[in-house]
Design a protein around this nucleic acid. Structure first.
Lengths: 157, 157
DNA sequence: CGAAGGTGGTCTCTTTTCGAGACCGACGCT
DNA sequence: AGCGTCGGTCTCGAAAAGAGACCACCTTCG
């Protein structure tokens, strides 16, 4: 039970990771972005045990990342990305960039191409004020409103 | 044993996730980016069981993401980010952006500020050719050299 | 009608992983 | 000697994952 409590920490990296940080969740979401919507499709594509998939899909629905609904044409279930889920795309693309750079000795297995353009999707870290590119060295952490609210609410320690 | 074999798939999202996709690994790396280098510091900050930490650090060193060395001044061990590890930063920042947007009702707990600038680090997905901002809808997957090499090498199926 | 096949979903049983905390040897200090 | 800290190891009970059978429901097709 200790691990789940990490979600209470005032940290916007830790909190998502408690939801996304496991063996299968991000893989399921990757499939969802590839257009997969059906239980058996997720299961077959990933080789994930059915009970595990059931659990993970349920958790993602609980968190509002996926939405479960009956398909319009038939009556089978569909799992679709919500807006919140859709916003996870940069995370997957950042992983993709790293994978291409460091785990793809033969070059990228897949190009994530820009529609109607020779270019390719790439993630970049930049300053939202001056627009300059940034790396970890350029970053200075500083307390924000969420931290103050957390302290005011009587955080332990 | 099935799960580890996902690393053989020609997919630059799947392969990193087999390394990074678990409860603790990305949290450890988050600490590393925050400047943490010592075993006991990782352990204390995260509350991770010592044996687990030992295992994870070892795995990250094996993958060349962290480098273990004896500290110059003393003789205690240090774990530092390699170049490869350093390149993971955009992933953590993408997670941070999502956490700020969807899991921080009181606002960001921490601002990742640009040094000497009022701005803040933000991840964006853009085309590396025309520079246009992109979302999942603008992306078209297309076979790349890594996929062809994988097929030529006699991939199953 | 009844069999076949697909759907999402559940249950059981075994193996693997995780978590908590004691324990260790090496080193430094006093 | 006595104590504290360091990274690291060991044990053991608890939790999670994996495999695969099983289920009810619905279509389709003979």
């Amino acid at each position: 039970m200790r691990y789940e409590q990490l979600a209470d920490l005032p940290c916007s990296i830790t909190r998502p990771l408690v939801v996304l940080g496991d063996r299968w969740t991000l893989l399921i979401l990757k499939e969802a972005f590839a257009g997969v919507r059906r239980f058996n499709a997720f299961q077959g594509n990933l080789g994930i045990p059915r009970s595990r998939l059931q659990d993970r899909l349920g958790r993602l629905v609980e968190h509002g990342i996926l939405v479960r609904q009956q398909a319009a044409d038939g009556d089978h279930a569909e799992y679709r990305l919500s807006r919140k889920g859709h916003d996870l795309y940069p995370i997957l693309m950042a992983i993709k960039d790293w994978g291409d750079a460091h785990m793809a000795p033969d070059g990228p297995p897949v190009h994530y191409r820009h529609r109607d353009c020779p270019g390719e999707a790439r993630v970049s870290l930049a300053c939202d004020c001056c627009g300059e590119r940034m790396t970890a060295h350029d970053v200075v952490p500083e307390a924000g409103p969420g931290l103050l609210a957390h302290v005011d609410a009587g955080a332990p320690g």
